[in-house]
């Protein structure tokens, strides 16, 4: 028995060490750093100092946190609205068409946020963007730059989130029991009506969990708000980067990271509980 237990434990040692040393310890370090003191020389002294959280509790940072949460919630809703009908149709495509779409969507989803930000910077620019088309069609008198603005940040983040939304909804929708729809159709329900009365309610839990995932995902966006927004559109993630890399204030960056962690964890927990309680 002990030999068996030993032979089962041995292969797990390297992986345990890797995960323990490079995930658990760094994670604990963030918690420690968030209550550490910044010495006048710019070094960090571990201790128990809540001043960074007090600093967060000023209106400026509260406002930034609320702005981040509100914007990401809006993006989650928008990207699901765009992606849900498509994903529903995708499950009815031929295997070959399905495969091609999935490959393309995966490829775009993996494209660096830096490159997405760049392409939207071009799309929204004065000289080579949508403004030109508006001018050409005659809607706008003269082409204009659409970034930096909150709209530009939201547009690019929705674009970033849509492929994720498709892939998050895809398993539930492709496993959905089609006989329900067929039954409704035989009974004379219109396709559009059956979509709203059957497809959406049946997949409610997938919709909820996908929107939470998208919310957390966009909370993590760093480049789009910097490239396409002005500082008042910066999200918590950008502020954390800014504090850590450019202000060398690691304790405050860690405190903000803890806030971000609590924010995303509580949204996940709340929604899971809410959607679980309904069943």
């Amino acid at each position: 028995m002990t030999r068996k237990a030993l032979s089962q434990a041995l292969p797990l040692i390297p992986s345990s060490v890797m995960i323990g040393v490079f995930f658990l310890i760094p994670f604990v370090l963030i918690l420690l750093a968030s209550v550490a003191t910044l010495t006048p020389e710019g070094d960090m002294a571990y201790g128990f100092d809540l001043s960074h959280f007090e600093r967060f509790l000023s209106w400026f940072y509260i406002q930034r946190a609320l702005f981040s949460a509100g914007m990401c919630a809006l993006i989650a809703v928008l990207s699901l609205l765009i992606a849900f009908p498509f994903t529903y149709m995708l499950t009815t495509f031929s295997d070959r068409a399905k495969k091609i779409w999935l490959i393309y969507i995966l490829a775009q989803l993996s494209l660096s946020e830096v490159l997405i930000a760049f392409s939207w910077q071009i799309l929204l620019s004065r000289t080579a963007g949508l403004g030109n088309i508006l001018e050409w069609v005659g809607i706008a008198e003269k082409s204009f730059a659409m970034a930096p603005s909150a709209g530009a940040v939201i547009a690019a983040l929705v674009y970033l989130a849509v492929p994720f939304a498709v892939l998050l909804l895809y398993p539930a929708l492709s496993r959905m029991d089609r006989s329900l729809i067929e039954a409704a159709r035989t009974l004379g329900t219109s396709p559009l009506r059956s979509f709203f009365t059957i497809v959406i309610p049946v997949n409610r839990s997938a919709i909820v969990s996908s929107s939470v995932t998208i919310f957390v995902l966009t909370l993590g966006a760093i480049i789009v708000p910097q490239v396409l927004g002005s500082p008042e559109h910066w999200t918590l993630s950008v502020l954390i980067t800014d504090q850590a890399i450019f202000n060398f204030n690691l304790p405050f960056a860690s405190a903000l990271a803890v806030v971000l962690l609590i924010l995303s964890a509580s949204v996940i927990g709340l929604v899971m509980r809410f959607s679980g309680g309904e069943k």
């Binding site: 797990l12 345990s16 310890i25 994670f27 370090l29 963030i30 993590g220 690691l250």
Partner: peptide, 30 residues
């Protein structure tokens, strides 16, 4: 079906779910 391996599995999933900036900062500190 080792319980320890399953726990390790869940732990290994966690870094991917957290906002990347949190892990980035954790690695920076480490």
């Amino acid at each position: 079906g080792l319980r320890y391996a399953k726990a390790l599995f869940s732990l290994g999933i966690a870094p991917f779910i957290l906002p990347p900036v949190i892990m980035a900062l954790a690695f920076l500190l480490f």
